[in-house]
Design a protein around this nucleic acid. Structure first.
Lengths: 230, 230, 230, 230
DNA sequence: CATGAATGAGGCTTCATTCAT
DNA sequence: AATGAATGAAGCCTCATTCAT
């Protein structure tokens, strides 16, 4: 539309400038959200004037989309690479949890932007962000399905519900911890979240397992006694 | 707080007027969010003029806080009343889940307001809303603790983690469903979420456990026979 | 839409303010056209700040429409009143011409605004201005039709074409004269335009015909003389 | 005028580039008018960048003037050539009308540009465009004068008034038709406009009048003969 | 108590024009 | 001769807040 917009494949300088703007915008969006962010702030932080931003992005909204998209792409790549080095269903799910926890430690602002601002848009489901979001979430779902297939996970569970519990749980957990202004130990967090979910919250029929061991021990003792007796 | 309000305990008429404004503001905030809401809209919907709003509230932000606070108080009362009629740990937790799901169905706008606008504020943790939020969340934590105490819940679990999984899971589940523009069957949702969490996601080792019990039982019978024989 | 907008039936003060803005806007629009006019100019000329204009008008475009509409209403009233005092087809058409010439003397800017800016709008034909324009033009058409009916005008003529010739002729004539920076003698202009056109649209009774009659009369006299001579 | 152009008579390449820019500018100005046209659009359509345009034209305004001037020159040449192939006063005037109607069909955008943007300029009457406009209008005036001289047109008429009626009538007629979004049948239009006007401006010469003149002439000859005889 | 007109600062966006390369 | 990135001023519009009545 904008005929002033330079070619997509710009010069090196253009690419750098674009990146500067995206970085500046990311900072501003992260700290204030979309509505409260001002193009003037963004421009100032990028060291340029407002008008220049519009040489690279058609609108504030497009800029936000680009910011989030770039971030998502990096995140997806990161997860993809990371998963390549982990094996075993539990380990891979734990990795996804850990990586997502890192998002809250490192990119809280962007995570919020994504969740609170973009999803509100009526046309969100037609955007690139939506498909990136789906690609990201798919990592977790895929592991859950694999787990079911391999018999490590209960075949009764609904993968979507599990995924929501995990992502939502991480979000609240991270929020809560971060709010307390304390640091977030993501390894511990991952273990607690996954651990709780893995075994369930119901009191274990496993106490019975302990009982079993007791009974076995008693049997052993009795059997031994019998042997000696005879 | 409000330097302009003539008296904390105003006349009956003042109280009514204040309520009208809060109700109007709630409608507007719900439908458009904080930034897009205008004091003019709010005043108009309350049947007064802008200036009058400022006789009752110092600023737009204070108004929003009051709106959310009133809503939270109602929510807390509702949960409190509701819980009084439910017994059993599982039933009470399920009730909390169900009630929270209803928030997303009935008060999506306010839930968003809470999450988007209020939490963003640096000073959120000093506000009245924060403590209301904690009071609300405490219902769930209390049930979990009670469950542990009564032996219905695994004593290993961390109540906070469980609560985060529940609230976060609900949030994501509700968002996902509502975004798909499909209606949200909150009873089904409650069952799925609680069910998944209750039993855990790990495949039950139970078949082999049952086998063990069988073998032990046989051993016990044999051993007993031996003992008696000798 | 704009809930800040005060009631249509405003206070006396509001009406005055509105008029001030319309007058200021008219001056600015007249001298620079729509695009080049700035709301800042208009506000300044009305002695208020830009924002205040928006308390009375939703947009620059609406303001222009109001300016033109008010002017048109006055013009229509003026023509209507004036025609009431003139009788005879020729006299009434001459009056319409004269009145329209006055528009170019007194309201050139607005005439231009009307013709050049408003008509360009795709939705012009749905606006109030369009119907006002039609009402105004209808005065002329009505007189032409009446003239035909009464036998004073040639029944062959197409009223629309005649009206276009008149309005268009006036416009060009007025422009040309005014451009020469000389004053426009509208009485003379009316006579010249109508005179030129009249001979064509009036039922024919040409001067040359009169001349012919003269020649015949002379012949008759001569012939008579001849007869008498012989 | 242009302080930047290196030489009035540039290289062949320069001339071509200038033409490209003018053509591009014409397209843009036609479709959007002056204010809404952007130099960026023009440059893009010419396949160059904005800065380059300023090597050939000092400003947007100068560029518009050049566009209109070039168009006017073409129009004048076209009329000049066309008239060379038409003879007879009526035919030649009809040709001028027809040609002008074509302007509204083919070059509406430019006609508007001329009327809306250029005429508004206070200094219009000092511009080249003004004299081109005069040259163009002169074709019509010349034919009218010729018509009077040859006795085909009534010697009473004021050529300027007639020309204004024609040009103005065409303009209004064309606008009205084009606005109705119906196509404009320019041959029919020319006939209706000229027809209506002709009967008025042509020296009267009805068939019956001609017959009368013939009979009178014969009578005069006979009478004269009789007179001389006697 | 209430009004509501007015403010003024700020928001996003556009673009003609310039200038270092 | 050409580039094209950058500017900076301007444009339209919104609105929380104030204050004289």
């Amino acid at each position: 539309m904008s005929s002033r917009r330079t070619a997509k494949q710009g010069s090196n300088r253009q690419v750098l400038r674009e990146r500067e703007i995206i970085n500046a915008a990311r900072l501003v969006f992260e700290s204030t959200g979309f509505d409260s962010a001002s193009m003037a702030d963004i421009a100032a932080r990028a060291g340029i004037v407002e008008g220049t931003v519009y040489l690279y992005f058609d609108s504030k909204k497009e800029l936000m989309h680009r910011v989030v998209a770039e971030w998502y792409e990096g995140l997806i790549a990161s997860v993809s690479n990371g998963l390549a080095r982990v094996s075993g269903v539990r380990g891979r799910i734990r990795f996804c949890i850990l990586r997502h926890l890192r998002v809250y430690v490192e990119d809280t602002g962007l995570a919020n932007l994504m969740i609170r601002e973009l999803r509100r848009d009526k046309k969100f489901y037609e955007t690139e962000i939506y498909s990136l979001n789906k690609r990201y979430a798919a990592f977790m779902t895929a592991e859950i399905l694999e787990g079911i297939k391999q018999g490590e996970l209960n075949s009764d569970i609904a993968p979507d519900v599990v995924r929501d519990l995990i992502f939502g749980g991480i979000e609240h957990y991270a929020y809560r911890i971060l709010s307390g202004r304390g640091g977030l130990d993501i390894d511990l967090a991952a273990d607690r979240i996954l651990g709780t979910l893995w075994a369930g919250i119901a009191a274990p029929k496993n106490t019975s397992q302990i009982a079993l061991e007791d009974r076995i021990a008693r049997l052993e003792r009795m059997t031994l006694a019998n042997s000696e007796k005879s």
